[in-house]
Structures are given as structure tokens and as C-alpha cells.
Design a protein around this nucleic acid. Structure first.
Lengths: 407, 407
DNA sequence: AGGAAATATATAAAAGGCGTTAATAAACGC
DNA sequence: GCGTTTATTAACGCCTTTTATATATTTCCT
């Protein structure tokens, strides 16, 4: 509660740390820079830049590009060129999803060097079983990339549940039996003897969108992650909003008119299929031919109707499909209206299932939103497919790895 | 949108600034410290502390307490004792409220040295008229305290409307005709030639609660400021959440079941009286004597019923009053439930009208909240009466004044 | 082709600042 | 006068900057 009264660190080596940090910051993006470039990027003088680089070189964080083949042959003495030594360390990203496990190994540049994905099988009923699978998979991606376990500097993990501020334990009941009872840090030992950062999947999704996705450099953005459940990742004022760990939980939607329950929102895409099927089975309504595009899409078997089919039919302009879509978008728009008006973000990103249908959904949502007395931020669909929480996990693990270097 | 790539500031004087900042930080609370105390507070060595103090002394930010009368007479050479020079500068706090103007002058220690309050009169119909009153009042509080205008370092102003990120203009339509069309910074020139920080009243209220109120050192807190309208001041992760300036606007409540419109919430207290009057006029309902406590409170004239009377009757256990209260608290609880569940703050503070009835309202709200599927943070009533936005304005002005000194 | 001039970079040297520790001086109570 | 606490001074080490010098490469001239 009390903000820690940190001691002043006004001793001289701090300056060196600031300088080193500035240099690292210029290099973490993956760029290759010479001393002149680093001087411009950091504002430091040449002697300082070079001594810092020599130190970082010795520590292994930075590597020097051999200058044998000169690309840009300018006159003058050739410059030493520096780049982040991506192989100096690695991080693990893990998405303990509702339906499947995703895991990857990334180097310090954030490049994914190996990955693995598998759907949960029937015997993976509880948290302990699934963590077992995750442990095995971790060793597998390491072996696959030929990376020594000692080179792993941190691991990040996404879970579809609120996470306590300590970053090791799940705060509330979740989709997965036994998960809330575990301290994940302890549960993964001794296999994971590296630092583990656990966070909510929606929180990590918004971090990923800001890192590699549609919300780069946007400081006020909310990601609505729609899967088995609906979660919001709230990033405001340039930082992730966690509250007591459960910020962004959407249970409050039970109180919002015309939305229905939370599950219905979460299963937005599943619901699309169900409603469309019901529409058809309801019989021939005036103006809607029974052999509509919808029927074609599902091969004439309404029960097999999937969300994607409805979206496809809507894309082709089928009126029945559009009508079904409207039922669902009207609901979603109200959710967005609440979030947008209360938090006033610059952008709201749709992630998870609905993101793939952004071309159809977003114009529709924009229209609905105009009809409500609501703030109207920029609506965008995620382009990270189902990798957002995984990439967010990589990012927080990287942040942890760099934390000792960056001021 | 793009976070500015700030140049590295790794030059030597930065160390001095860090040290000076640490010393100032130890003194801004108003404490009087000797070198030993400052060494403990900052972690710096004695020579550094003393040189920094000499500099601050010369700049006028710090004053030295004469050591003539020794309070704690210990052996050894007496220590020089330093304190913030509160009279080095002053700030203005202004609350351009819906019903009245409040203005005060505070010194650098945050002590209010003069203040003035006046209700708007009929001729003060629009923003220009009210700003004129504020200008006059500013000169008045200055004269009252005998402070030179040149000693004013900044002014903070609370307005009951969302404010643009630039801090000078109101973002949305507001209670006050013409306010949204003005750039307040320009509108107050040439009288105000000092820096002006304008912000939403609820935002400033939460800052005040963290500074002097019930939420000191709480890093995740929401203030619900209820007056003519309802606004939320959202402070999460140790910082104020502004979004695009309109975060905390409660228009979204129109979408929440069982709440009614925003005005009804805002006028929570006014409404209490109205409902109670209607209850009585409705006639004798079984179990409720017509000559109840309620009637006594209003002197037998239901039309004159005020919120305070209902609260008083409820305090005495009057069942009819309690019933009326329940209607209103049920509504308010839903608002709190939405905010609490979505943002998961540690604490929610009731400010404005309802705060005075906290002893009655809060137990009632806690009970209602338990009945909803909601997060349940600590509920507290503000103790700052109607001064919260004003004190918040003082605080942000002080922050601005200190900004050049503190890292 | 060979060599000098031009150019850009690397390295070395000197200067100025800062905080720390250690030593010295000052002020007070007993 | 002695012990104690604090203030002040001195010496040291460290960091970045500027200035000057050395180095490596290309370009241009003969």
C-alpha cells in the first residue's frame, strides 16, 4: 500500500548505468548501429558510446558486426557496428489457453526460434495435468532450438483468469479446476528454475498489441479478448492497469442492459452459428428464401452452422446473415459503449475469435455505436490471430530479462 | 501518440539534481530535519546533504531554523535544521463549481493562507461571467493574505466537465453555457499570467483524497463525486487515469440496468427528499404511521423534505426512512458494482453530497453490494466535505510548482 | 598504378563535476 | 578540560565532455 521510499542512488556509477541503458534501448529493437548512430540515438558523446559498447560487448549483451563486406562504402575509416546479441539469452512464452497450450522460445530480439502448440486432451482435466504438459513442452521447444536451459532468462505465462499482484497465483475462480489453488511458481519447480511472470491473457494481449500489433505506440487502448470468456486488457496512460489483479474482468456486464450474460459475449462467435441455425429452422420468414446463402454455407445442414459460415454469407451480402450479425453486434456494441465511455481510450481492439471477421464486424459495430450515446474510439481488429497472449507473455519475459540493464 | 525519444541526460549535474530532488522530497511534507535526518531520508552523505541544502537555501526553496532555543538539548555541536520555505511561493486553487465558486491561496507547504467562497448569483449565467468573478476573487485572496502576485507560481482549477489533455479546455458539453467553447488559459489572461492547470473536478477530488483525505497511500482508488452530476476520479496503478480526458464520465450508466439516468444518480441526495415526500403523500401504508419520524423531521410539510431529514430519520431507525434509503442505495450500489468489478480498485470513496451521510449509506451500500455478483472493495466516505476538488486543484498547482525541482 | 589529400572514425589526454570516505575543526553539555 | 555531536575541509575515484592525435579507408590526381 505504502509506496516504498527508495533510497537515492546518486552515486557516480549510476551515470554509467544510464548511459548503458540508453545504448541498450537503442539496440533492443534489433537495429544495427555504429557509434555515430548511437550518438544520435542517445545524445552521448563518442568516447562514452564506445566505452559503453565495449563493456556491453564483454558482458555479452551486444555483438559486433564484422565489417569485412562493406555495404555502404563511404570514405573514411570504417565504423564498428553494434547490434543486440540476440543469442545472449532466451525467454519462454506460454499461453495456458482454454482449449490448447501454446508455447514458444524467443531470443532477446524477440524472434521466435521454436514453438509448439497442442490441444488439451480429455485426460488433461485439471491444472496439475496441464502444467505437466507445459513442462514437457518447455523442454521440447528448448531441445528443438538446441538452446541450453541455462540460457533461459525468464518465462512468461498467460492464463485465462485474473492473477494476483504477486504474479504467481490466480486470484479468482477460473475455467480450470485447481488453478486458483496453485502457486504456479512453486507448481512448476523444479523444471522452471527461471523467473516466471504470470498474467491474465487479456492483459498480455494488450501488451502484445502495443508491441507488435495494431496498437503500436497507442498509450490508451483497451483489448477485448473474446474466447471461452470475455476479458479486457486495459492499458491507460502508458501503463497496464491491473487494479488488485482483476481489473478488466467483465462480470459487470451482467448489469448492463441488453447484453445477456458474460458467457454469451465470450462465445460471440459460437453464438453466431447457433442463432443462424435457429433462424433457418424457424422456417421461411417473408423475404428470406430458405435456400439462402446461409443454407449453402452450411451444406444444407443447419445444425452444422459455424460462425465463419455466417460471416462468409454476410460478406456476400446475404440479408439473413446480416440480420443475425446485427443481433450479436448490437450486444457487443453495448459492451464497447460502456468501456469506451467510462475509460475514454483512443482505441479498442477486438482480439480472439471475432478479430478474423473484423472486416464485417467493425463497420457494423461502428454503426451501432453511433446509435448509442457513447464515446466512439477507433475500433480495430487484432492482426495477431490467436498469438496475442503468447506474444505478450514473451514480451513481459523479455522485459524481465532486460530489467537489470535498463534504467 | 508516439512516446517521445528523450535524449539521455547522463551529464554530471544530473547527479546533483537527483540529490537535490531527494532532499526536497524529504522536506515537502513540511517536516523540519537536520543533516542527520536528511542523510537517513535520502541515503546521501553528510557533505552532499549540506552542499545541497546550501544551494537550496540560496535559491530560497529551503529555510534554516534558527537554533537559539534548543528544544532537545543534547550534547555536541548543535545541528543546522532545515525546512521547506513555505513562503517562497504560493499557488491558487479554484473550484468553479456548479453552485458556487471556491478559491484559496496556499503556500508551498500546502497550508491555506486565505480563502473565499461565494454562490453564483443569477447574473452569473455563463462561463465568461463566472470567470470574471473568479478573477476578482483571485485578487481578493491575494490581497487578503498580503501576497504579491509575482509570488504565485501556479494555479489549479476544477471544473465539473471533462477536460482536454492540454489542460486548458473543456472537452465536452458541460453544465455551464459557453465553457466548452473557451480556452480557459486564454480567457483568464491577462489577470492570470501564471501557469494554469485545469482538470475535471472528480479527477482532482481523487488527488485530494490521496493527499489529505481518506485514501492516503492507496494506489488503486476511485472517487465517486456526486453533485449536480456524477463523475468518477480514477486513480490506478499509482497514477490518475485520464484517457482522452473524459475517463470517468458516467454517461455509460444509461446502459446499466436499474440505475435510471445519470442525473438521478447525481442528485442522489436531492432525490432522497423527493422520494420520501412522495411516500408520505401516498398516504398511510400499513405498518407506517403517518406521524413518523419523517414527518417530524420536515415539520409536517412533506414538500419541504430534504435529504438530510431522511438521513436523520434513518439514523433514528425510522423504518419508512430506511425504506426510502434502500431505493436509492440499491441504485447506487449497482453503479459501484460496475466500477468495482471492472477496475478492481482497493477502495471506492464517496464524495460530494452523500459523503456526509456515510455512516448511514455505507453499511447499506455494503449490504446491497453483497447481494450483487460484484467485487467488493473498501467503501469509504470522504472527510473533505466539499473541499476535495479545491484541494486537488491546490495539489496539482503545487506539483507544477515543484516540477522544476523534483526529478 | 601509385601516392597524396580528404574523410570519417578510433583513441588518448585533459578538464570539470560530483559523491564518498577520512581527517580536522567547531560548538556545546557536563 | 573532556566527551560528544556536527560542520567543514581534503583527498580520492569515477564519469562525461571537449580537444587533440592517430588510424583506416576512399577518392582523386599525376
Amino acid at each position: 500500500m505504502k509506496s516504498s521510499t527508495r533510497k537515492t542512488e546518486a552515486t557516480l556509477p549510476v551515470l554509467r548505468k544510464i548511459s548503458a541503458s540508453a545504448v541498450m534501448r537503442a539496440l533492443v529493437s534489433g537495429a544495427t548501429l555504429d557509434a555515430t548512430g548511437l550518438m544520435e540515438a542517445t545524445g552521448l558523446s563518442r568516447p562514452t558510446v564506445l566505452t559503453v559498447c565495449d563493456e556491453l560487448l564483454k558482458l555479452g549483451w551486444v555483438s559486433e558486426i564484422e565489417t569485412s563486406s562493406r555495404l555502404a562504402a563511404r570514405s573514411g575509416r570504417p565504423s564498428r557496428r553494434f547490434t543486440l546479441n540476440a543469442a545472449a539469452g532466451y525467454v519462454l512464452g506460454i499461453d495456458l489457453g482454454a482449449t490448447k497450450l501454446q508455447i514458444c522460445l524467443a531470443d532477446l530480439a524477440g524472434t521466435i526460434v521454436s514453438e509448439h502448440s497442442e490441444r488439451w486432451r480429455d485426460e488433461h482435466v485439471g491444472a496439475p495435468e496441464r502444467l505437466m504438459v507445459a513442462r514437457r513442452a518447455a523442454w521440447e521447444v528448448l531441445a528443438q532450438a538446441g538452446v541450453e536451459p541455462s540460457k533461459v532468462m525468464a518465462a512468461g505465462m498467460a492464463v485465462p483468469a485474473p492473477v494476483r499482484p504477486n504474479g504467481h497465483a490466480v486470484a479468482l475462480e477460473s475455467y480450470l479446476p485447481g488453478l486458483a489453488a496453485l502457486d504456479l511458481r512453486l507448481a512448476l519447480l523444479p523444471d522452471f528454475d527461471w523467473p516466471l511472470i504470470v498474467d491474465n491473457d487479456a492483459n498480455l494481449a494488450v501488451i502484445a498489441e502495443r508491441w507488435l500489433g495494431i496498437a503500436q505506440d497507442v498509450d490508451d487502448v483497451v483489448v477485448l479478448l473474446s474466447g471461452e470468456r470475455l476479458g479486457a486488457g486495459i492499458y491507460l496512460g502508458g501503463q497496464l492497469i491491473r487494479g488488485g489483479g482483476a481489473a478488466g474482468e467483465m462480470r459487470f456486464l451482467e448489469l448492463v442492459e441488453g447484453v445477456g450474460n458474460t458467457d454469451a459475449i465470450g462465445g460471440m462467435c459460437r453464438e453466431l452459428g447457433a442463432i443462424a441455425a435457429a433462424e433457418i429452422l424457424d422456417g421461411e420468414r417473408p423475404g428470406h428464401a430458405n435456400d439462402s446463402e446461409l443454407l449453402q454455407q452450411c451444406g444444407g445442414i443447419p445444425a452444422s452452422m459455424e460462425a465463419e459460415m455466417v460471416i462468409n454469407a454476410a460478406r456476400k451480402g446475404d440479408p439473413a446473415a446480416r440480420e443475425v450479425l446485427e443481433v450479436v453486434t448490437e450486444r457487443t456494441a453495448r459492451v464497447i459503449a460502456v468501456v469506451a465511455t467510462f475509460l475514454d481510450p483512443q482505441m479498442i481492439v477486438l482480439s480472439g475469435g471475432p478479430a478474423g471477421a473484423g472486416d464485417v464486424l467493425i463497420p457494423s459495430l461502428n454503426k451501432e455505436l453511433d446509435g448509442l450515446n457513447s464515446a466512439h474510439p477507433h475500433l480495430a481488429a487484432s492482426t495477431l490471430t490467436d498469438h496475442a497472449p503468447l506474444l505478450g507473455a514473451v514480451r513481459v519475459a523479455l522485459n524481465h530479462a532486460f530489467a537489470s540493464l535498463l534504467v
